[in-house]
């Protein structure tokens, strides 16, 4: 918590980093906080719990491009609660404000190199901030090189601890890693077991060709073509249902 004087009655007013508005407890004035100050360390709270993280992973793993049954067969070997540090730079480039986000720790984890702007309820990170047992990923990239290499002139910079769940899992004797943003639930993933489109394409392609042929046949022999079409409808439906459920 930081504090300031109420601009109306000069009473001390305490506020938090994310606050844009506070109410003075003495004179009830609404006070707006103008954040021109720089150099804060912020942290985003974990709004995704451990159970949520696993559930979000399973939802993601059941997605159409993921290997069939990945949600059930993936073996989660570890789930780590981490705060990943990123620098947030506001720069003045030719009179325009640009925001840049750069990692403050070297990592091979997916998604963390191109985090855009971490969305979330920014809190001031100080001694009283409760990390909830999350591991702080060590900062090993200095801010200075970024400051000199980014375009424009500096307006504001801050360090933001971005909350993530690092989830290691194995599938068919191979290890994979996924990162889940604990702020929004977004899943970042590099390599993952993929599902082949072959069976889907085969069903759709063969069905289409069969109907095309039967349509042409219908000109010569409508009854035979009609019967064949009925069989094909049943066949395509059965095959596609099997593919959608099992492949």
């Amino acid at each position: 918590m930081a504090s300031m004087k109420c601009p109306k009655c000069a009473a001390p007013v305490e506020f938090d980093a994310g606050d844009r508005f506070v109410k003075c407890s003495y004179c009830s004035s609404q006070i707006f906080i103008d954040k021109a100050g720089a150099g804060f360390i912020y942290a985003l709270p974990f709004s995704v719990t451990e159970n949520d993280a696993v559930g979000i992973f399973r939802r993601w793993a059941a997605g159409p491009t993921r290997a069939k049954d990945l949600d059930k067969l993936a073996q989660i070997s570890s789930l780590k609660k981490q705060y990943f540090p990123v620098y947030m730079f506001k720069r003045d480039v030719n009179g325009m404000e640009h925001v840049y986000i750069e990692p403050a720790a070297s990592t091979t984890l997916p998604g963390l190199h191109n985090l855009k702007v971490p969305g979330g309820d920014l809190k001031i990170f100080d001694d009283r901030f409760d990390t909830g047992g999350a591991e702080l990923v060590k900062i090993d990239i200095e801010m200075a090189p970024y400051l000199s290499s980014l375009p424009g002139t500096a307006k504001e910079q801050a360090l933001v601890y971005f909350p993530i769940w690092r989830l290691d899992y194995a599938f068919e004797q191979r290890a994979y890693v996924a990162v889940i943003s604990a702020s929004s639930g977004e899943v970042f993933s590099g390599d993952f077991p993929k599902r082949s489109s072959g069976a889907y394409m085969a069903v759709a392609g063969l069905g289409f060709l069969a109907f095309l042929a039967e349509g042409l046949l219908a000109i010569a022999s409508p009854v035979l073509a009609g019967a064949l079409m009925a069989v094909t409808v049943a066949g395509v439906f059965g095959a596609s249902n099997y593919v959608a459920r099992r492949m």
Partner: peptide
């Protein structure tokens, strides 16, 4: 996909 293949094919 059943509707798509049949209608599209025809």
């Amino acid at each position: 996909v059943t509707a798509g293949t049949s209608i599209g094919g025809l």
